[in-house]
Design a protein around this nucleic acid. Sequence first.
RNA 1: GGGCGUGUAGCUCAAUGGCAGAGCAGUGGCCUUUUAAGUCAUUGGUUGAAGGUUCGAGCCCUUCCACGCUCACCA
Length: 512
Amino acid sequence: MANEYTNLERNRLEKLERLRAGGIEPFPTRTERTHTSQEAIRQFEAAEAAAKSTGEETPAVVPATLAGRLRSLRAMGKITFAHIEDGEGRVQLFLRANDLGQEQFDLFNREFDLGDFVQAGGEMFRTRTGEPTLKVTSFRLLAKAITPLPAAKDEVVDGQVVRHATLADPETRYRQRYADLVVNPHVRQIFQRRAATIRALRTFLDQRGFIEVETPILQPIYGGAAARPFTTHHNQLKQDLYLRISFELYLKRLTVGMFERVYEIGRDFRNEGVSFKHNPEFTQLEFYWSYADYLQVMDMTEQMVNYVAEQVLGTHRIQFRGQEIDLTPPWKRLTMRDGLLDVTGVDIDAHPTAESLAAAMRQKELPVKPGAARGKLIDSMLSEYLEPNLIQPTFLYDYPRDLSPLAKSKPGNPLTVERFEGFLGGMELCNAFTELNDPLDQEQRFLEMGREYEADDDERHPMDEDYLQAMRYGMPPMGGFGMGVDRLAMLMTDSDSIREVILFPHLRNREE
RNA sequence: GGGCGUGUAGCUCAAUGGCAGAGCAGUGGCCUUUUAAGUCAUUGGUUGAAGGUUCGAGCCCUUCCACGCUCACCA
């Protein structure tokens, strides 16, 4: 569809044509930047400090050529003040007809707009109000902005209400994230913190001897979680493929191959509902640690999250949704049985069958979904009554076996597996267990899952024969771990929605 | 998928069923140290889309679209 220009855009296009007519290329190829905004300011302030210490009246000249986006313009007759912004910050420009000549000065005022990328050369000085500023002796357009940035200046109502209105509409912010990033510096900070979060995770794991690997995103059989996959097709191979819903089964194959400690940070895809904590594609961290069990993984988890906060925020006490969360280890540990007993009065250990558990729940006047399996019933109590109350970091551990087909049973307790989930801020953050490494038991679990989900084909857990083959070669005992990196980024940035920490979140297509 | 809500100028927002407005930005002036400058003037609208009710619809009704919140779903 052809773009239709607004009046404001047409106005800028006319400027662009005038520039071209005057022999000025509005999108030149080269830039001659010598300093970033902050380098120029730092160097100037250093020259000032040096002059002061030696008693000089004027500091040494600091020549600089800067480049950035025009973010403010104040034309005052024969002089103009402006600010340009680059990746590090802002610096003020000072232009004077006397210095530039009337023709150049007029060119700047008439044809340059907010949002344009410009290059400006000159010397640093300090204005009467004390701001380090570039006195411009030459300038050049680097790239014309046709569309005005979606930002307004402040609004003064009755000399009282000052509102620095800027792009706020969530739809526009997500669809045009580039514009959001330009005008909302705090959004840039969110993604800098996200990057720091992922960097800290890598550093933490690398330091502990884990090796980062990459496993297939296109998989012939999906597995490792219960979720509907996205399906695609390879034309030449005439083969349906799935976008992975987890990395688990591939990473565990690598432990068979003697990689004792592996991890992967990457994208998972789940063809399910979208919410403030769900996006169809999301970033996952999984690691597998041979010869460890879920208790060791628990210890490492609290250390890892605490380390991330220290690296990203410089503190162990983070603010999230108006509450302070203390990440300092050790975290609270609670068995699922005790946790549910506390909040619902139902003892899951006393009810080994779905029928018995459902009866107990009805007696406590808890909602029961008819025909639900025991694991589903437990899960519903967990997410309804327990999870929202777990604000401070809490490990919930020892899960029912029928919720966890890839986890190992507790010795002497076949109904319970060695599994934990980490909760904080009322959200599930991670999921881990002592991994099942018995190929015969694993085959049996796959068969059970297949039966259980027979009614709902979408959720069926497909049998992965090759995974069983890997396990038959011998799989070491190990602890495994998975964590939603987006949710960790939410915690590190105090973001209410997963969409705030994903650069380009999924949105429905616009009507033509 | 259900419920509730929102959609008006580039941005942020007004407008009892009765002339579609403001601030900022934009445009044209004045202004040689401003601070998201000041000042005078001024342009800009298919009110998300389509239909309906009405003498008259931004407002009421119906359908559709998008977004937000929420429920359902979601190991």
